[in-house]
Nucleic acid binder design. Structure first.
Lengths: 197, 197
DNA sequence: GTCTATACACCGATAGAC
DNA sequence: GTCTATCGGTGTATAGAC
């Protein structure tokens, strides 16, 4: 995460500086609102009110910028997940994190990009695996404590929660709601039984 | 689906002709392999071995081409789903269609594009709603016949199957497999009970 | 640190010849 | 039907001044 840069020596801006964050913030917005094809150095510069050249002072290539943008997001998301897992009601809190994940449009862009930016792909894989590991260990602990060995193993539950939450978010943004009420009821019933309020 | 073209009068190629299909085939490949940013008239022309100008003889704009590409795919997918639903083992067949859906990379591109091409968005919504309706009616019938009113309503099951299948496909393509065995076992157990071989 | 200026390639879309 | 040629615009990335 720190800085694997400096392959070609070139004067560079400091990761973590105000401008650096502003660029990642801008990148997120442009990705979300206009898609990855619109995330160009010119567009980003215009969006955050600097000149195009400055983008290349902070990032070697546009791909690097994209990877860093995802990386910052992933760190935040993992952080949220860890907090949820170690809370008093881990099941409910984790489900809440899944449902209120980053905007589905943003995720759609990163998923598409991950298929052709190798470094991003690696980061995405790492993120999914780490998220799942946290979820599985939290679910295992919570369900064991309840001495309630459900027929559905924790790993399957984690996969289920993530998949369904992502679909719910994406479809809700599109305006599709068929089946949403029903599936939310199923999850609600499970939570009520496994982790009463 | 037929041809909502001809808003601006311009001589156009015939939808359904060999070249038209070749262009949609090429568009699918370029989308899958290189992403939507690479789906340009020049790239597509080169890919299928014609001149750039010809692309605009068959499609008014590149957005139109994308919408048609999705449309053709959606028709095929709905067709597969209908066949599955009216087969002897609808539950297993529908699950099979969900799992062996079009390449996850292609879907990722369309999901991203749907957020900014209005006509595509409308087609995607229509596709999701129609798919779900087919699934729900098939599931309702199959589960009623078994007089087996599960605690999980058909609409929730449909949502579940679609979400999980999509995630499984996407993650498998990335190389992530954590939890896959477990969730497949859960679905397998459900199918064995609800629709014995 | 931030800028101007510039290289060179590629984009969507059209005019109009054959 | 399919082509050549072309418009104006935008892309990444760099050189080098201040």
């Amino acid at each position: 995460m720190t800085r694997a840069q400096q392959t070609k020596s070139r004067r560079m801006g400091i990761p973590g500086s105000a401008n650096w964050h502003a660029m990642l913030d801008g990148a997120e917005c442009v990705l979300r609102e206009e898609g990855y094809a619109a995330l160009t150095s010119r567009r980003l510069a215009e969006y955050i009110g600097v000149k195009q050249r400055l983008v290349y002072y902070y990032f070697q290539t546009m791909d690097d910028l994209i990877v860093e943008t995802f990386g910052r997001l992933a760190v935040r998301e993992i952080e949220r997940l860890r907090e949820a897992a170690s809370s008093k009601r881990p099941l409910r809190e984790i489900w809440d994190v899944c449902i209120h994940t980053s905007d589905a449009r943003l995720i759609a862009e990163f998923m598409a990009l991950a298929n052709r930016i190798k470094k991003l792909r690696a980061e995405v894989i790492r993120f999914i695996e780490e998220s799942r590991a946290i979820q599985v260990s939290a679910l295992s602990a919570a369900l064991k404590r309840k001495s309630r060995n459900s027929r559905v193993p924790p790993a399957a539950l984690a996969m289920l929660a993530t998949s369904v939450a992502l679909s719910l978010t994406r479809e809700a943004e599109l305006g599709v709601t068929a089946g949403h009420r029903e599936i939310l009821a199923v999850f609600g019933a499970f939570l009520s039984e496994a982790e009463p309020k």
